[in-house]
């Protein structure tokens, strides 16, 4: 598991895997994929990092407490984006009816609040995968 070739290949490939995950998250309303698949891909890049380089080095990058905070932030972000509709005088999670500009069809900004909601759900899924993995691995070490 602590191989030289493995470490170098992972160091070369992982930035592109993370970028692919963020791409799938941000283009969720335009192309196949979405927040769940993109969040899993982003989380898997972090899991692969901690599998190859060890759990301690990944804890140095992002601690477990930070991951828990990001996980809670994702859920709260979804709720906050839903409250925008109520604050504008319409119902929960209202998008166009709340007067939010939708943008041009086919462009990246073409869904109003959907882009921001998808970002929150993607962060939540990615941090949940990493937290699940870290708790499994820590249980093994005890």
């Amino acid at each position: 598991m602590r191989d030289f070739v493995l470490k170098r290949v992972v160091a070369l490939v992982l930035p592109f895997v993370t970028m692919l995950g963020l791409y799938v998250i941000f283009h969720g309303h335009l192309s196949p994929g979405g927040s769940f698949s993109g969040g899993i891909i982003t989380g898997l890049s972090m899991i692969a990092f901690s599998l190859v380089f060890g759990l301690d080095r990944s804890q140095e990058k992002i601690s477990e407490r930070m991951m828990t905070l990001i996980e809670s932030f994702g859920a709260l972000w979804y709720g906050a984006m839903g409250l925008v509709g109520i604050l504008r005088g319409t119902s929960f999670l209202m998008n166009k009816g709340a007067g939010i500009p939708l943008g041009e069809p086919g462009k990246l900004y073409s869904g109003g609040l959907i882009l921001l909601i998808t970002l929150g759900v993607g962060l939540k899924v990615a941090s949940t995968m990493v937290t699940l993995f870290v708790s499994l691995m820590e249980e093994e070490e005890e």
Partner: peptide
């Protein structure tokens, strides 16, 4: 293709977690 992306990501992700277990 939407399901294909989710299946590939979730399948490989669950397999990684299973290897950890």
């Amino acid at each position: 293709p939407d399901l294909a992306i989710t299946e590939a990501a979730a399948g490989i992700g669950m397999t990684t977690l299973m290897i950890a277990v």
